[in-house]
Structures are given as structure tokens and as C-alpha cells.
Design a protein around this nucleic acid. Structure first.
Length: 643
DNA sequence: GACTGGGCGCTTTTT
DNA sequence: GCGCCCAGTC
């Protein structure tokens, strides 16, 4: 079991190298999520699911949540849909049910529990599961003694990678299947726990010895990856975390370069510096660009680097960040496909019911949903029996019926042809190209939008050629579960530079690593400073630092544009920690001031006229002076120095 | 019911 | 700097 598809792929490769391809095939290797999907499909009716259940991604989740909030007549100024999505995800990952939540009696909890239930109902009505449900339904499935016995019989040895990231349901699955045989091997590092926000529970790894009494513990403190300089930096940072297994890595490598820290004027200079540095290093070392990685905290950061790399003609591979799958055209086409695969998928139906416009507007949809709720029927059923309902216009019923007919006949034609032909036919039948012409008068943007559509055809082609199961259902599954991985050809490509988030870098290694934007507010992220939960950010920095084999460069800037406004920023406290220095109190105070909920002391100097619009913004702007001199002129300090 | 323009709020990380 | 939502207009 792994946590990412990338890790699963690598694991498969290594196993094949060890035991040969043929034997490797007998092992089940995959993420928890894909393991659960497969199991749930196999035992669908026992799990209380239709075998054609769909999987909804984060965008669908958001739509479902908005709908749930509308149903409950909660204005989204009151509870933000995206906040609700993440809170409910967290609850699911902690195995907390709506009922249990309600039991606390807290007013907010009770309301949240309503939202929780409504949201679940919406998903169920659509016949879809969200990512968290995949795990939850699996836990429920193996409560059945017969099924559990079968699983225990089939999987007599379990191996879990990155065990510190295990959440409640995942732990439950491992425990249920593994307890009987006690053949459970896990690998993990509490210092690399960076998924607390999605319910990962470090206590699981700390308690492993209790759960599996016969366990042998092997400590791996010798590091064979990085130079002593890099390891020293990593240790220096991580020891500032109080709650952790006390340990310190030792490097087995020979001494190398000191860690390089650069402070640039702004993002632009940062990108320029990093790319120039990489260019030069690559030229000197004569190695491919594949040994370089640029790591960042947030998905918006890579933009400038991309532009720079492009103009320099340096091949790169961007992992994470803004996804191709977030594009409107892609989402539309996938919704059509999902609807074909699963007629009950209400979320997808709602998305495309009026795309291209066919005379079914928002009000009509609202009315039909209301009828569906009243009569406890589904949206398609309401449309089909439309004449009976006086509130809905006949024209809408007609148009809706025709749309459903189109989907039905597409579904009926599914068997006739291969996947690629089918996808092409669907795009033609729904008239998507015409729709693009209608929406985008500009030729260039239209071409770009169409490109995304053809990209789906390409993906279908690749799937058809490579997958053991070229069905539509499997295609959709792979797409929703793998939406971050492009194609494996890029990953192994040794002359491409890698750009990725710190999160997705875990488990990987690169000869030379650049961590960019190492500033207060970014690493540690503003939100975590606010919530006083900087430890996980420190672990994230630790993960980033330990990705580097030979050379590590950290960069930060003096000012950065945020929300379209430029503001002075400070170097991250982690840079001070890494140099073995105390973080200046001044910096901590300033970060508190800037990002924290309340100012540390009273607010004397600004009771005057604060523009009524957004007082928060106004105070903030006033309170951030230029970069404090004590940090800019630090002798051989941060500017261009090494440690 | 579709379209357009202005205002608003937001940007953490992933399966 | 962006996309989303809403209100107003055709």
C-alpha cells in the first residue's frame, strides 16, 4: 500500500527488479484508494453500492456541497462551501459520523452534521463516492465476517509505505486484514508526517508496537542520500519540533558543498536567478536536467519559473499545480462520459444539462430538483414523468427528455465501438465544437480550448492501448484517481527538470534541489502561522531539504505580490533555524502581526478613520513597513551567502 | 432563458 | 490576477 500513484509505480518497478516481472504480477501494489475501488467493485452489492458507482473529484465535491448548502438554505456567506468540504473530509478521515458529531450538542457541530448528512445524501443520490468514502465503504465492507476472512486469506502479507500518513480508515483496513496473520511491515518517519490536514494520524506509527505486539523495530538513521552538510541542515531545522521521536540522521556520504541561501528582490529575480544557476550548473556538470528539481509550497508559484524555463528552452516536467483536469472543457466532456457510464450521476447531469444551451435554465433546474426531493425520485425520473408536474414548463420537459435520449442512445452504442471512437462520437453528438465556436469568438482562445478537448481523445487512445481493461468505466476511474500524473514517459525522462510541490516531492530524490519562496507566510504558510501549527510546516521543510543528494539551494525574496498587491516579506524562520541561530523574536512578532488573528498588543496608532470597506486590509497595509533593516543587512547573513 | 458587466473573495498542501 | 456570483438587460 502506498499513498500516491507515483509511489505505487516506483514500488512496482523495484519489486519487478528484485523478483522478476512474472512474480511481481502476483502482488497487489497500489494506493489505498485504488485498492478500495477494486475491492468495492468486486463486492459492490455487499457494500451496498451499485457496481457502476462513480468517483467524484474535488470539483464535484464542491458542487455537491454548494447544492447541499442551498438545500438547507444556508447562505454561503455563513458557511463557505470549500471550508465545509475540507471539514467534512477531515471528519470522514477520523471516522466521525454525522450522528457522533451531533452528539456533542454544540450548536455549530449540529449544523455541520446537517450539512454532512445532506452532502452525503446528495452523493448517494448521484450514485457516486468521494475519495474519503472509498475508504469508509471499504471499512464497512470488511465488517462482514465472510468478506474479511476472504481478504485475510488472500492477503497474508501486508506492506505499508509512509505509514506516518495513515488516517483512521486506512489504519482500520490494515488492522482488520493484518491482525490475524501479524505479517505486517510498515515504513515511516514521524518527522515526515505532512498530511495532518487530511486526517493523517502520526499516533498510528507511534503506537505500532502496541498494535502488533510481536513487532521488531529497525531504526534507519543512516542516510545514504545526502551530504553531511544537507543532513546537518535538516537536523538543525527539525529539532525545533518538540513532539517527536528523538533521532538524528547521519550521513554516509562524503562532504560536499554548503547549503546555499539566496535572497532576491522579487519573484522575477528569483526565477531568473534559479534558472540561470541551473543552466550554469548543468553546463558545468554535463549531466542532464533530470537531476535538478525546483520545489515550492503552493500551486501558483511555478508560473514564473515556467515562463523563464520556456524562454531558455529548458525541458521541464511540472507535477501538481494547476491541473489540466481543472479546465472547463475537460470537466464538461468528462461529465458527459460519466453520465453515460452512470445514468444516475446527478452531479454530472447538473453540470451539463444545459451545455450547450438547450433551454433548461437555472430556475427550471431548481424546480425540478424541488420536485425530485418532494417525490423522492431522481432528476431523470422527474424529467421523464414531466407532464405530471405543473410547475415545470413543457418546453423544458421536452428538451430534457431529448437530452436524456441522446445520452441513452450513446450508452446503447457503447458496445459497438472502441473507446476512442466512442469519445469522438460523443463530442460530435453533443455538439461541443459548435459550442466552443459560440462561446469564444477569438480564434486563438478557441483553438486553445479545443486543444484540451483533443487531449481527452489522446488520453483515451493511450488508455485503450495500454490498459488491461479498456472500458469506459475503467478509463474514468483512472482519470479521476490519477488526475495528477500525466504520462509515465515524462517521469523517467532523465533530461527534464522537475518542478513540484513539496508535498509531492516526498519519497523522491534529486541531485540538486532548489526550494523557492522560503519566506514567512509561504513556508511556514500564513494559515498555519495563524493556527499556531507551524510544526507540520517544519516537517514539510525537512522533507524538502532531505530530497537533495549533493546540493541544496534555498531562495527567498524581499517583496512578493499577493492578491495583486506587493508587500514586503521576511525570510522564513526555518532559514535561521538551519543556520543554527535563534529566530529573531522580531520576526516571529512580525509574522504574528501580519498573519495572526489578533495583534499581540493593543493597537494604539490607528483609531482614526478606517475606510469602511475592509478595515482588516487597511490596518495590514499600514502595519507592514519596508523590510526591517536588521534583516537586510546581516553581514554575511542571508544575502547571497552560504551556511 | 441567455448574456454582460461589475463587485467580491480568495489562493495550502492530495487521493 | 483570477474566477465566481449576482443583478440588470435584451
Amino acid at each position: 500500500m502506498t499513498f500516491t500513484n507515483k509511489a505505487a509505480g516506483e514500488m512496482k518497478e523495484r519489486i519487478a527488479k528484485l523478483v522478476g516481472k512474472r512474480s511481481a504480477k502476483e502482488l497487489t501494489v497500489g494506493t489505498f484508494h485504488s485498492f478500495c475501488v477494486r475491492s468495492l467493485r468486486k463486492h459492490a452489492e455487499k457494500a451496498g453500492l451499485r457496481s457502476g458507482f462513480g468517483i467524484c473529484d474535488s470539483d464535484d465535491q464542491l458542487m455537491a456541497m454548494k447544492q447541499a448548502l442551498r438545500d438547507l438554505q444556508i447562505p454561503d456567506t455563513d458557511l463557505q462551501p470549500n471550508v465545509c468540504v475540507s471539514q467534512i473530509s477531515l471528519l470522514k478521515n477520523r471516522l466521525i459520523t454525522p450522528r457522533a458529531l451531533r452528539a456533542s450538542g454544540d450548536k455549530h457541530d449540529i449544523r455541520m452534521s446537517d450539512v454532512f448528512e445532506r452532502y452525503n445524501q446528495g452523493l448517494r443520490a448521484s450514485g457516486v463516492l468521494d475519495f474519503d468514502d472509498l475508504l469508509l465503504y471499504m471499512v464497512k465492507l470488511i465488517e462482514d465476517p465472510d468478506i474479511l476472512t476472504a481478504f485475510r486469506k488472500q492477503y497474508r502479507y501486508l506492506f505499508v509505505d509512509e505509514y506516518q500518513d495513515t488516517n483512521g480508515p486506512q489504519y482500520e483496513i490494515v488492522r482488520q486484514i493484518g491482525t490475524k496473520h501479524q505479517n505486517v511491515c510498515v515504513v515511516g518517519d514521524d518527522d515526515q508526517s505532512i498530511y495532518g490536514w487530511r486526517g493523517a494520524d502520526v499516533s498510528k506509527i507511534l503506537n505500532f508496537e502496541k498494535d502488533f505486539a510481536k513487532a521488531t523495530v529497525v531504526r534507519l538513521e543512516m542516510n545514504y542520500r545526502s551530504t553531511p552538510e544537507i543532513i546537518a541542515g535538516a537536523n538543525a531545522v527539525i529539532r525545533n519540533n518538540r513532539q517527536r521521536h528523538d533521532k538524528a540522521l547521519r550521513s554516509a556520504a562524503k562532504s560536499g558543498e554548503p547549503i546555499n541561501v539566496q535572497r532576491l528582490d522579487d519573484e522575477e529575480s528569483e526565477a531568473l536567478f534559479v534558472v540561470e544557476d541551473i543552466k550554469q550548473r548543468q553546463w558545468e556538470s554535463k549531466c542532464g536536467y533530470g537531476q535538478f528539481a525546483i520545489l515550492f509550497r503552493t500551486a501558483v508559484q511555478p508560473r514564473l519559473f515556467e515562463m523563464r524555463l520556456r524562454s531558455e528552452g529548458i525541458p521541464y516536467n511540472l507535477v501538481g499545480g494547476m491541473s489540466f483536469f481543472d479546465r472547463k472543457e475537460v470537466r464538461d466532456i468528462l461529465s458527459f462520459l460519466k453520465l453515460v457510464a452512470n445514468p444516475a450521476d446527478e452531479l454530472s447531469l447538473l453540470r451539463v444539462i444545459n451545455t450547450p444551451p438547450r433551454g433548461i435554465g437555472a430556475t427550471s433546474v431548481e424546480r425540478m430538483l424541488a420536485v425530485a426531493m418532494e417525490t423522492r425520485s431522481s432528476l431523470p425520473e422527474v424529467i421523464r414523468s414531466g407532464e405530471a408536474h405543473t410547475t415545470i414548463k413543457p418546453s423544458v420537459v421536452n428538451a430534457g427528455g431529448r437530452f436524456l435520449d441522446t445520452m441513452d442512445s450513446l450508452r446503447a452504442s457503447l458496445e459497438e465501438s472502441d473507446l476512442v471512437t466512442f469519445v469522438k462520437r460523443l463530442i460530435r453528438v453533443v455538439g461541443y465544437e459548435t459550442e466552443l465556436q459560440r462561446c469564444y469568438k477569438d480564434k486563438a482562445t478557441r483553438a486553445k480550448r479545443w486543444e484540451a478537448v483533443t487531449e481527452i481523445m489522446n488520453m483515451a487512445e493511450i488508455h485503450q492501448r495500454k490498459s488491461s481493461d479498456p472500458s469506459l468505466q475503467r478509463f474514468l476511474e483512472d482519470v479521476t484517481l490519477n488526475s495528477n500524473e500525466e504520462d509515465d514517459k515524462d517521469v523517467t525522462d532523465s533530461h527534464r527538470l522537475t518542478m513540484m510541490t513539496l508535498h509531492s516531492a516526498k519519497g523522491l530524490e534529486f541531485g540538486e534541489v532548489y526550494i523557492v519562496g522560503v519566506e514567512e507566510g509561504l513556508i511556514p504558510h500564513a494559515k498555519t502561522i495563524k493556527e499556531k501549527d507551524v510544526d507540520e510546516e517544519r516537517r514539510l521543510a525537512y522533507v524538502g531539504i532531505t530530497r537533495a543528494e549533493r546540493r541544496l539551494t534555498l531562495s527567498c525574496v524581499k517583496s512578493r505580490a499577493r492578491r495583486g498587491q506587493r508587500a514586503a516579506v521576511l525570510p522564513s524562520r526555518f532559514i535561521y533555524e538551519m543556520r543554527g541561530k535563534d529566530t529573531p523574536q522580531e520576526l516571529i512578532d512580525r509574522a504574528e502581526l501580519e498573519f495572526g488573528d489578533r495583534p499581540p498588543e493593543a493597537k494604539p496608532a490607528q483609531k482614526k478613520k478606517s475606510g469602511k470597506k475592509s478595515p482588516r486590509k487597511a490596518t495590514r497595509k499600514k502595519k507592514i513597513p519596508k523590510v526591517p533593516p536588521s534583516h537586510t543587512h546581516q553581514g554575511r547573513g542571508l544575502t547571497g551567502g552560504s551556511i
